[in-house]
Design a protein around this nucleic acid. Structure first.
Length: 588
RNA sequence: GGUCCUGUGGUGCAGCCUGGAGUGCACGCCGCCCUGUCAAGGCGGAGGUCGCGAGUUCAAAUCUCGUCAGGACCGCCA
């Protein structure tokens, strides 16, 4: 290196008296007139420069401003007694400047980079993302991301996987999310679609004998954005042949262990498993946050013959919130409204007291029922019981499951710092189908998912009862990814299509190339994919995906930096055989 | 498609409910002073289409409607 001999963090370990040359940005200056302190920032950290403006070579330090780019040569020196800064890794030393060269100047910034200033308007940060990225926090997040991807590659490489790239210009399939479309110039009127995932290609790679495939794959879904959803995102995509679901989960677990070990130094050990049915029964969610209690309990039998008409004959699910008996009536009313919004008929609450319960519906319940309820939930005086009754147990579970998260957060039971505790969890045995609005079965995962071998007999008689060999990976109540054993036999695939109401002609039209491939000896195979952005977000303890993506999009899918999406030249449309029918809105 | 929150010098806020002169706070910026700071300090100064457009009113940052932008959420995301 010729421009610098060390980086800012390097002065902490440099020998005292060494002459060093540093390059970096002025993070802060403290100009005392006869002496000037500069905090020089580079990718490694901060170094304090002390300059005497009366020295030749340092005259210009009075003119230095924030974010000027400097090259500083000086001597690493111990800080005088009493001026050591214990908050800084380099705080015991400083560089006494001999020469300060301004490599580039900077206009005053549109917003402060100071980490103590929070809440700068996000569209402003994104418009000047290259400045925003100078913040140590953003720099760190992108480094964590790189470490994560590297650890993933190392883990799969070590297990004999082959990294293969699949096309990003591919065929649109009407299932699933809305596709991003790319018009074809050579075939006007036809379109490519950007892949929502490499699903079909990775199965073809198994037919192609690759045996073990993985990819850090970019994927696109044209759906509305959320804090944890960007229109383009990255997933670890993998598939293996001659393996079962347990093998796949073991392979992914090894990668997750390696990532967490690399990034946090922690050993997460084995990842526990739970069936979907157990997750729904205990947590009312297929992605349970297992970091706190308040588990659900089915108390239908307690109230089977109850005088309370809302309970009798219905499924009744209850949850005990420890210490929440002091919740105000207005909070209880708000939770009741919330339950109704979530699809419940109502919410029954009971405050547990020394002598029994206090509740608007207590008069409809017998002492025996109350005693059994308290016994089942293990409730103590001061606790709050919340109950939902419905003809369908699943409705009770999902409503109470969502309420569990919200009440848990409000009562301080659910951890807010996502990074403190990493509760990974495998959720297995998902249903193969879920009922669509008209009640017809639609794939819960995707139509190539293998039914659970114990349930195949119900495919024709009671399809909604059939479990699948599909599994999700959950972290702290957030779905990281999902996978499944795939169907490799054409006859079973045809039966699934038949349940889904997809006739042979239609199946051939949509997935013909895959079905044909499977006629030439497709190996049994299974796979998985998880969201790299989401994993990194949690490891960085961030609340939004945008904090771990270098150049993310706003909620309306725009990029304030480049202005994308934007109009194109009329001649480009002519080349593509396209004509715009939507009038341009007046805009801003 | 829907619900809610936000929009005020370069930045972050207060002001809005209860209309009365662009009023205030902190940071930043510019100038001067200053040899041990690390959110340096002192003194002085500049900087405004209150997102945009209508309406109500003698009078609108403030009330009403519309619209644009950003954010959270519902729908959506096999």
């Amino acid at each position: 290196m010729t421009m610098r001999t060390t980086v800012a963090a390097g002065i902490a370990t440099a020998a005292l008296g060494d002459e060093v040359t540093l390059c970096g940005w002025v993070a802060n200056r403290r100009d005392h007139g006869g002496i000037v302190f500069l905090d020089l920032r580079d990718a490694s950290g901060l170094a304090q420069i002390v300059a005497d403006p009366s020295l030749s070579g340092c005259e210009m330090v009075h003119d230095v401003r924030a974010e000027y780019v400097l090259q500083v040569t000086g001597v690493v020196s111990p800080r005088p007694e009493g001026t050591v800064n214990p908050d800084l890794p380099t705080g015991a030393v400083e560089v006494v400047a001999q020469t300060v060269v301004v490599l580039n100047r900077s206009e005053p910034l549109p917003f402060p980079l100071d980490e103590t200033h929070h809440g700068v308007d996000e569209s402003l940060r994104l418009k000047y993302r290259y400045l925003d990225l100078r913040k140590p926090r953003m720099n760190r997040n992108l480094r964590v991301r790189a470490e994560t991807v590297r650890a993933i590659r190392q883990a799969f490489d070590a297990q004999g996987f082959v990294e293969v790239e699949t096309p990003t210009l591919t065929l649109s399939t009407p299932e699933g999310a809305r596709d991003y479309l790319v018009p074809s110039r050579t075939q006007p009127g036809s379109f490519y679609a950007l892949p929502q995932s490499p699903q079909l290609f990775k199965q073809l790679l198994m037919v192609g004998g690759l045996d073990r495939y993985y990819q850090i794959a970019h994927c696109w879904r044209d759906e509305d954005l959320r804090a944890d959803r960007q229109p383009e995102f990255t997933q670890l995509d993998m598939e293996a042949s001659f393996v079962d679901d347990v093998d796949i989960r073991d392979m992914v677990t090894i990668a997750i262990q390696r990532v967490v070990g690399t990034v946090t130094g922690r050993d997460i050990g084995e990842i526990p498993s739970m069936t979907w049915a157990e997750a729904m029964a205990r947590f009312g969610s297929d992605k349970p946050d297992t970091r706190f209690g308040c588990e659900l309990n089915d108390v239908s039998t307690v109230f089977a013959t109850s005088e309370f008409r809302a309970f009798a004959g219905n499924a009744v699910v209850a949850m005990c919130v420890p210490g929440a008996g002091d919740a105000s009536r207005s909070r209880l009313d708000a939770w009741t409204d919330r339950s109704k919004a979530l699809g419940a008929a109502g919410l029954v609450w009971m405050r547990v007291t020394e002598t029994g319960v206090e509740s608007p519906v207590a008069k409809f319940c017998t002492d025996v029922e109350i005693a059994a309820l308290i016994e089942t939930l293990g409730a103590a005086p001061g606790d709050l019981l919340l109950m939902v009754a419905d003809a369908r147990a699943l409705t009770c579970q999902t409503v109470l499951g969502q309420l569990r998260l919200e009440v848990g957060a409000e009562r301080g039971l659910r951890p807010t710092g996502l990074g403190d505790q990493l509760n990974f969890l495998w959720v297995t045995d998902f249903p193969l189908f879920e009922p669509e609005s008209q009640g017809d079965p639609v794939p819960a995962h995707h139509p190539f998912t293998m039914p659970h071998p114990d349930d195949v007999e119900f495919l024709s008689t009671d399809p909604l009862r059939v479990r699948s060999l599909a599994y999700d990976l959950v972290l702290n109540g957030i779905e990281l990814g999902s996978g499944s054993v795939r169907i490799h036999r054409p006859d079973l695939q045809a039966e699934i299509f038949s349940v889904l109401g997809i006739d042979e002609e239609r199946a051939e039209e949509r997935f013909g190339f895959l079905l044909q491939a499977f006629r030439y000896g497709a190996p049994p195979h299974a796979g998985f994919a998880f969201g790299v952005d989401r994993l990194v977000m949690i490891l960085c303890d961030e609340q939004s995906l945008r904090e771990v993506i270098a150049f993310p999009k706003t909620q309306s899918g725009a990029d304030p930096l480049t202005g994308a999406p934007g109009p194109v030249d009329a001649s480009q449309l002519v080349d593509l055989g396209l004509r715009i029918s939507v009038p341009k809105s007046p805009g801003s």
